[in-house]
């Protein structure tokens, strides 16, 4: 049945429309989860709020479990999914830079736009800086091109590197996520004097 475009179920002209719909949903969920507030985001660093970590872990494990089941049920063919190539050392460096920017700025690229949407001034400044950074990067790109393309590992997945099946890796990852949920909750309880958990039945 899927993926829809590579299998020719729908024409490739639909990809922008699908991207638009998914983008609206993504922005809505980010805002609804409170990610427009830089307090929530930097809270991971200061140890009083791990909602970002839990949010993304939840999204990842639900998607993983869902895709594995859908693959089994024949709704989507995971072998046809495009996997971005892995450039190991540039990715590590890039992740460090992004992490530093995350804590200093209080936004990630996606959440800065949702914050603009609700009219935050710091988010506007953050986005201007973002474009400035992109401009500087493209100007110095020729000098770092070799590093940028170094360490190409091809289109690999973690389960391929570890030599285990996708399903086993999903299971292991869910266990890790659940442990992370519990540990972050313990840390939050210790750091915050008055913990006021969401009411949820």
């Amino acid at each position: 049945m899927g993926p829809l475009i590579p299998l020719g179920q729908i024409s490739s002209g639909w990809d922008f429309i699908i991207a638009l719909i998914i983008g609206i949903a993504f922005g809505f969920i980010l805002e609804a989860s409170g990610f427009s507030s830089s307090r929530n985001i930097t809270g991971v660093f200061y140890g009083y709020n791990f909602v970002v970590l839990r949010f993304f872990f939840t999204a990842v494990i639900v998607a993983m479990i869902g895709l594995e089941y859908f693959d089994y049920m024949g709704w989507i063919d995971l072998n046809m999914i495009y996997i971005l190539p892995t450039y190991l050392s540039p990715m590590i460096v890039g992740a460090i830079i992004m992490g530093v920017g995350f804590i200093i700025g209080g936004f990630c690229p996606g959440t800065s736009y949702t914050a603009i949407a609700i009219g935050k001034l710091d988010a506007i400044v953050f986005t201007l800086g973002l474009f400035l950074g992109i401009f500087i990067f493209s100007e110095i790109f020729p000098y770092i091109e070799d590093f940028y393309y170094s360490g190409n590992m091809g289109n690999i997945t973690i389960s391929e590197v570890l030599g285990i099946s996708n399903k086993l890796f999903t299971f292991i990852f869910v266990i890790i996520a659940v442990i992370a949920f519990y540990v972050t909750w313990l840390i939050e309880k210790k750091v915050r004097k008055t913990i006021n958990p969401y009411k949820f039945e």
Partner: peptide
């Protein structure tokens, strides 16, 4: 911690564990 969270944890673990039994 709300005990409902543990129900959710259990559910996710059961779902992912069920993957291992798929042929």
């Amino acid at each position: 911690m709300n005990k409902n969270y543990f129900i959710l944890f259990g559910l996710l673990i059961v779902l992912s564990g069920g993957l291992l039994f798929l042929p």
